[in-house]
Amino acid sequence: MSDPVAAPSTRQPGQPRTALLDVDRVQKTYTGQGRTVEAVRNLTFSVGDGELVCIVGPSGAGKTTLLKVIAGLLEPTSGTVTLDGTAVTGPPPSMAVVFQEYGRSLFPWMTVEGNVELPLKQKKMGKERRAELVRDALEAVGLADAHSAYPWQLSGGMQQRVAIARAVAYQPKVLLMDEPFAAVDAQTRADLEDLIRSLWHRLGVTILFVTHDIDESVYLGERVLVLSSSPTVIMEDLAIDLPDERNQLDTRSSPRFAELRHHVYEQIQLAKHRRGGEPVTGPAPAGSPT
């Protein structure tokens, strides 16, 4: 096992990658109380080893459902998810998830250190190795000094950094992120986006990043998958041909960024008006977390 932080980047942009994660004809229907809601309809895509793929879609597009299915937290009604050649039937040990609700995904009765260390204890890792991984991970997210604080003593952005450090220390092959920055302020968000890019570069981890923010998806991703409204299908699989070195100022003001952004925006507008088939049986989504 290589050190998560010091691992050399093996990335060669543009080089073809073997598929690590395969999502094949996944469909998810919720049933209960006499009605059924088809949240996800027939999604097929694959993510290559070491890729950073963003999934963007309008509110209520079943993004969270999809992510939970991939994470093995929800069973699809039909279809399969394959990770590294093995079918996902429960949460796979080589996958880590970062949720949007940082306030609810960290254990409030544990310190920052305890939170990061807990999954490693589950992996039956030696004490010294755990301490090393925890220290490196916290350093990597810029929280080396906060290890003995409790999560609720930190700001929202710092709490999400802790959740990211926990995921990093876990040394996953695939990092799933479910709108991780939807609830933090704009400046913090920009910092965290850059943190994700730099972690991705340094660790060579595969990242699947779900967001409803079009700019964020274009800025972060190598590829952007545009989802339709629920019941969800993939409207477009878009390669982001921005330079690999990105920064908030230049990248976001580049003409190509504007074009890509414009394109994705159009697709989302289309998605809102052209739902993936028959009308939804459930009530309209009660507001959006924008």
Binding site: K68, A71, G72, L73, G90, P91, P93, M95, A96, V97, F99, E101, R104, S105, F107, L118, P119, Q122, K123, R166, Y170
Partner: peptide, 11 residues
């Protein structure tokens, strides 16, 4: 969310 988190980390 905490429950999902635990599950995904194999706790």
């Amino acid at each position: 969310v905490l429950s999902d988190t635990s599950r995904s980390y194999g706790i």
